[in-house]
Design a protein around this nucleic acid. Sequence first.
DNA 1: AGTATATATATGCGTATGTATATATTAACT
DNA 2: AGTTAATATATACATACGCATATATATACT
Lengths: 188, 188
Amino acid sequence: MSLPHTLLGLLKYKPNTGYNIKTAFASSINFFWEVSLPQIYRTLNSMETRGWLDSDIEHQDGRPSKKIYRITPEGDREFAQWLEQAPEAVKPKDELLVKLFFGGFMDHQTLTGHIKDRRNKAEQFLKSAGEIIPPSVREYADKADAGQDIPFWLLTLDLGRRRAQMTIEWCDETLRILEKNNRKKEES
Amino acid sequence: MSLPHTLLGLLKYKPNTGYNIKTAFASSINFFWEVSLPQIYRTLNSMETRGWLDSDIEHQDGRPSKKIYRITPEGDREFAQWLEQAPEAVKPKDELLVKLFFGGFMDHQTLTGHIKDRRNKAEQFLKSAGEIIPPSVREYADKADAGQDIPFWLLTLDLGRRRAQMTIEWCDETLRILEKNNRKKEES
DNA sequence: AGTATATATATGCGTATGTATATATTAACT
DNA sequence: AGTTAATATATACATACGCATATATATACT
């Protein structure tokens, strides 16, 4: 459970609304942590109950009122303490791997189709990681007055890039082996 | 949601008990999908309610009775249909990346400590992937009469190996950059 | 002799999360 | 003129999942 702490981190840069935080996610953390808007609202709400956040309502003409959350001293302490703790291990849950595991029950075309899809997604990510993400990260950093943290953000992006590259290589090698095994099977 | 389908796949090899399926996980799918024992029991139960499984009780002297689940024709159809569907995208949720993202709020030692831990885990996995996993996979394949599926299982293992290798390289490069930036900061 | 581990199934409780839906207005597009 | 997207918050419902606990016995370890 670290969504609350992720939100604490973003609110440390500046007070913000749930809606705005969602757009902040979209241009940064979203690449390694997907969150929906209702989830953000619910979490902010429970964080306020726990005393980690305060909020002010800002009325607007025509638009719905904004609820601007601010981190409290308790929230600040909680965040600092969380950063110290050893991060939870990643729990990989990869449906493609399960299907490949049961590849013996599938026909060749369907299985290789799934793997080609994965390869395409990785390639698309590589493109956006090179062209789209870094500018949008810089844009968000400006908005949040967090320019000094860009180096850290680019390091997280670098892992995404390496992961995508690795995925492409694994897909190619896997497809090669599956084709080879399939030819053998058809011959016999 | 694909745990039910994963269980269907394992039960296609042969009827089995929840307890035994857990040990089957431990020597194969567990490397890319962690599941607890209560979760398996609960899922098997709901699958039986849905008509995907049947079960027989086998009484034993001294030991608790075994509940042996068997896949039904409905379960079989469900599994075949699931294999055809495009696999869900992986939703990465990596706490280390969040902490690195907020690296500006941490001291250098703590952050690099977290990254070194990640590197150690990847190295341990590489060792077990080379020495321990393949034999245990083969052992399970024998037990499940699934020798012909070993090639697929080794392909999933190969992704784990590549991921670990990539992780090590990223950790090394990240540590290098963090050290460099830290030296600059201390000089100024 | 006492403790831990393996075998075997299961419930309870709390949290996390996905999807759908409700509400309200403005701007932009077709 | 009508539809969609963007701005802004929130609830309802269902599923998934982690962790603790209950029960019962045999074996292995210290």
